Amino acid sequence: MLDIGRKLQNLREAHGMSQRALARRAGISNTLVSLIEKGKTCPFIASLKKILDSFPVELSDFFVPRPDAPPRTGVPRK
């Protein structure tokens, strides 16, 4: 399962951006960015698109697993 919050946090930090700066750029609240990164809420696609527009990342690319990502563990879903 994709951890949207962790992936977003890694992307933000890789670009040297604070949560507040990302929120300002995306036109959303920094509280929402924080909640997403902590896994306390799952963003609507429209909100995630606004966030990802702040980076050189397409929405579809965000959901593609990286080749260097650790393997998933657990029981596969049917």
Rank of each mutant, 00 (worst) to 15 (best):
L2G: 00
L2Y: 09
D3H: 12
D3R: 06
G5T: 02
G5D: 03
R6A: 14
R6W: 07
R6V: 12
K7D: 04
L8A: 02
Q9T: 03
N10V: 01
N10D: 09
N10G: 04
L11Y: 05
R12Q: 06
E13A: 08
E13H: 12
H15T: 05
M17N: 09
Q19S: 12
Q19C: 06
R20E: 15
R20P: 06
A21D: 15
L22D: 02
L22F: 07
A23M: 02
A23Q: 05
R24N: 13
A26D: 10
G27A: 11
G27C: 05
G27Y: 10
I28H: 05
I28Q: 07
S29V: 04
S29F: 08
N30G: 03
T31P: 02
T31I: 14
L32E: 09
S34H: 14
S34T: 11
S34L: 14
I36E: 00
E37V: 00
E37I: 07
K38H: 13
K38V: 05
G39Q: 06
G39H: 04
G39R: 08
K40Y: 12
K40M: 10
T41Y: 08
T41R: 15
T41W: 09
T41A: 11
C42E: 10
C42I: 07
C42A: 10
C42Y: 10
P43Q: 00
P43M: 04
F44M: 14
F44S: 15
F44H: 13
I45P: 02
A46K: 14
A46H: 14
A46S: 15
L48Y: 04
L48I: 09
K49A: 10
K49W: 11
K49F: 09
K50Y: 02
I51Y: 04
D53T: 08
D53M: 09
D53E: 13
D53V: 00
S54P: 06
F55R: 03
F55M: 08
F55V: 01
P56W: 07
P56V: 04
E58G: 02
L59F: 12
L59R: 03
L59K: 08
S60G: 11
S60F: 12
D61F: 07
F62H: 07
F62V: 01
F62L: 02
F63V: 08
V64K: 14
P65G: 05
P65E: 04
R66Q: 13
P67F: 09
A69C: 00
R72E: 13
R72H: 11
T73E: 13
T73S: 12
V75S: 12
V75E: 13
P76A: 11
P76V: 05
P76L: 09
R77E: 13
R77H: 10
R77F: 07
K78N: 10
